[in-house]
């Protein structure tokens, strides 16, 4: 027996409510983040990730309070992403009780920020979130590019090269979202995940597209993921985290039961 593959429910939080969009556009309300976090903890989630998608700057304090409250009663690793742009943002989240922060767009605009943050707080708490979209057409070798702003803006940066660079700059983990799959319930982009997992030395969290439990298992067995992240299949009561783990264990995947 060895290290378990992790299941990480993800809570997209907008102005203090858990929401989930389909390809980042439509939004459905899924409840109070503290209550949702408690439930996932009880069900055996290995970690929790909060992505703050609040648009306005004034409402950003809300996520700090959510994290503070969750951290005082849920004792598993907590990651917070969304709007982490400078060292002060990292410190604020860690002080609120987060264990890791996920840096996305800011890394693309200023890669040195990743280096600075990892030197200051340690690589163990710096997750670089990568939103990738396939840019190759049928018949070409597969190629993926980094997109920012919730998948709306292309950057021209190759996803594999970018992952390697981010690890070099101090990322302790990669949170990899396939923008082609996010919200579609068609399963992870396994080719993308496998390519990135092979290319980097650090753990890779697969994200985007989970619609059933087989998708989670495939992320590990076919996509080489060290952890799998999902939102809507858990939020709307289709499956519990416990059911997901039991399913993965049946397929021979090591999980924490």
């Amino acid at each position: 027996m060895s290290l378990a593959k992790r299941i990480i429910p993800c809570l997209d939080v907008d102005q203090g409510r858990v929401v989930k969009g389909v390809q980042f556009i439509d939004i459905r309300d899924a409840g109070d983040p503290v209550e949702v976090a408690r439930r996932y903890d009880r069900e055996g989630a290995d970690e929790l990730t909060f992505l703050d998608i609040t648009a306005s700057h004034e409402d950003r304090e809300t996520i700090v309070h959510v994290v503070e409250q969750v951290a005082s009663e849920v004792f598993i690793p907590l990651t917070v992403g969304g709007g982490i742009r400078e060292v002060a943002d990292v410190r604020r989240m860690l002080n609120a009780g987060a264990d890791k922060v996920a840096i996305n767009t800011a890394a693309v605009f200023n890669p040195e920020f990743v280096r600075e943050a990892s030197e200051r707080f340690g690589s163990q708490c710096i997750v670089v979130a990568i939103d990738a979209k396939q840019v190759s057409v049928d018949g070409e070798p597969l190629r993926w590019e980094i997109f920012t702003h919730g998948g709306r803006k292309p950057t021209g940066i190759d996803a594999i090269e970018w992952s390697v660079k981010m690890v070099d700059y101090g990322a302790g983990e990669i949170l990899l979202t396939s923008m082609d799959r996010d919200g579609t319930k068609r399963g992870f982009n396994l080719e993308l995940n496998h390519a990135i997992s092979q290319a980097v030395s650090v753990p890779v969290i697969a994200s985007g597209g989970v619609g059933n439990l087989q998708h989670l298992a495939d992320g590990v067995t076919k996509g080489g993921a060290d952890a799998v992240l999902a939102a809507s299949i858990f939020h709307f009561g289709e499956y519990t985290v416990g059911e997901a783990k039991a399913f993965m264990a049946e397929q021979g995947i090591e999980v924490r039961l």
Partner: peptide
């Protein structure tokens, strides 16, 4: 001894026995 094919990631991150 376990799965020689699998390259183990560093850092050692997650739940272990």
């Amino acid at each position: 001894e376990q799965n020689p094919e699998e390259r183990l990631k560093i850092p050692h991150m997650g739940w272990n026995e």
